[in-house]
Amino acid sequence: MELGPFLNELWIVRYILLEGLWRTVSISLLAIVAGSLLGVLVGLALTYGALPLRWLMRGYTDFIRGTPVLVLVLASYYMLSTIGLQLNPFEAGVLALAVFCSSHVGEMLRGALQAIPRGQTEAAKVIGLTFHQAFIYVLAPQAIRHVLPTWVNTAAEMVKASTLLSIIGVGELLLTTQEIISRTFMSLPFYFFAGALYFVVNYGIERFGKYVERRTTIPS
């Protein structure tokens, strides 16, 4: 494999690739922000919700987590337009990833909240805090510390899952790469290059997650 022609091609397509990378980043960002907001609601409902709501949310998270992300993406893309919700591939894809993200964040938050010893709530009650105060000053800070490193890694999951949007024709990094390959027939170097870009982004997120973990650990 000659490197020269590849570098030549790479130079020609540099802006197209950058655009793809940017779309990958924006898909991931939108999905993680929307998904996390939704996920916090899901997590709270799973932990403190009235029984019917809790069951409903359990059904929601179990169903989403039992379905492959690709199926979520395809279903969102094909189904929503059929039932009259007109979304373009980008929107349908982001929606699917956000839903996927929300079920994970919800589970994470529930796990973290329930891992806090009962004594904490009792101690908060004893010093006269209301439930809301106890949640804000005692429970939430502990849960957030616990959840934050894992949450950062969810961002890496989103970047990886964003590749699935190439299948419904969203021009993110992977689809852009495939289009370049179909024109240049240089599948080996371009797949390798795309893989390397993903690696760099995700490895960065992973390191950041480790950093956050070090910072949020409660000294003992």
Partner: peptide, 23 residues
């Protein structure tokens, strides 16, 4: 471990199927 965990599986799937034959 680090490389595989940080690469999207779809990229790996496509790479193995479409690019490896070139090798």
């Amino acid at each position: 471990v680090t490389v595989i965990r940080n690469t999207p599986i779809l990229v790996l799937v496509l790479f193995t199927y479409f690019a490896l034959p070139q090798l």
